[in-house]
Simulated scan of single mutants.
Amino acid sequence: MTEKKRILDNIENDNSRPVLFSESHGGSESQLRLLFKYVPDEYFKDINLILNNANPSLIDKDRLNVLWMQHFVNQEEAKNLGSKDFVDQLDYVVFNSHWNFEKFQYQFKIPENKSIVIRNAVEQIAFHKKPKDKISLIYHTTPWRGLRHLLNVFKKINLKNVELNVCSSTKIYGKKFGEKYDEKYKSIFDECINSDNINYFGYLDNTKIIELLKKMHIYSFPSIWPETSCISAIESMAAGCNLVTTSLGALYETCTPFGKFITIDKDLQNLENKFQTKLSECIENYWSNENQELLRLQTETINKTYSWEERSKEWIGFLKKLKN
């Protein structure tokens, strides 16, 4: 049995996880698959890699226990990080952003000498010229992260040469999860289907999302969810899309200096008004020389900064150091 298969079997057989790993294509599961693609099997020897679950039953006393925590502190699977007994059994906790590390350190006093930040990464996306006949917006994440507010804003903007493409479904986390939660968001999905200038795709495989992003102009993401990193934002910027979003969670850390931000607002009407202003400005200025030069710089920078070629070196260095 390979080291990677051993780790994957442990995750797949973890009944305390809210989703089945093999069926889920969420950010965390996709990052683990890419980690295994880019880091050779030999580096995982003697490593018990635990994904997003501070469950004491997952500790392996015969191996080095590494918890890769990409969830936010308020998630059920993170609660045991408040237990000193559990943390004492961990050799390291890997966080996906400095913002996320700081939240866990503040909330649970995770020892700094057991903590490391290794940011998420994406596979490089080749640059493609964008179509000039219209401006295409995209929203490609789960519905609870801000889709309702985007729909409200998009309808107020109401420009004939602007379309919205929505790739959103709970099915990204697997059939069982989708059956349980899709009904909750059915009215939003139906609104997408029945609205002018909106193309609703539902769930799309990531490879199809990437191909779509190459034709998109703006990732419109009025996030109301505390992202601990944000794969969808990184992919969009790598594909040459402007990003209009909020400063909530790790979005500012992840997307600076290229993202166009509004401050998060508990008054959701205020949030929509601010987002509408920022998004309208971005649409109006999209084809300006200044913005086009910035997008070229953004594509080059993001593809280098968040490449798995670079991130794999960080993981290999960390795993080698851990064993010494």
Rank of each mutant, 00 (worst) to 15 (best):
K321P: 00
Y106C: 11
G178K: 13
K37G: 01
F95I: 06
L279S: 08
F189L: 01
E102V: 00
D62M: 09
T207R: 15
F44E: 08
V117F: 06
S136V: 13
F108D: 02
D196S: 13
G317C: 04
E29T: 08
I264E: 15
G178V: 12
F108E: 04
F101C: 06
P56D: 07
C167E: 06
N120G: 13
V66I: 15
S307P: 11
F261G: 08
E272M: 13
H25G: 00
V122K: 01
E281R: 03
V153S: 08
R63K: 15
T142Y: 01
I210R: 08
F36S: 05
K79G: 04
E284G: 00
N120C: 14
K321L: 12
L34Q: 10
N206I: 09
L279M: 09
K214C: 03
Y185T: 05
L151S: 02
C255K: 01
I210N: 08
V122R: 02
R119W: 08
A238Y: 07
K304R: 13
E3L: 05
T277N: 13
R148H: 13
L67F: 03
V122P: 03
N48M: 05
K109P: 00
E163T: 15
N291H: 10
I116G: 06
S307Q: 11
D88H: 10
V166E: 00
Y200L: 11
I59D: 09
E102L: 14
W308S: 06
V73K: 10
K214R: 15
I50G: 02
E253G: 08
D205K: 15
N100D: 13
L147Y: 07
Q107N: 02
L32G: 01
K103S: 09
Y306I: 00
K304L: 13
F275R: 14
I59Q: 07
D9W: 02
W315C: 05
I262P: 12
G146L: 02
G259K: 12
D133N: 15
E102I: 08
D41Y: 01
F21G: 10
L268V: 03
Q31N: 12
E314V: 00
E253M: 14
E309N: 15
L271Y: 09
S30L: 14
M237G: 02
F189R: 02
R145G: 01
L322P: 05
S312Y: 03
E293G: 11
S97F: 13
E300S: 06
N152P: 00
I210A: 11
L32Y: 12
F44V: 08
N165F: 01
Y306P: 04
F108K: 03
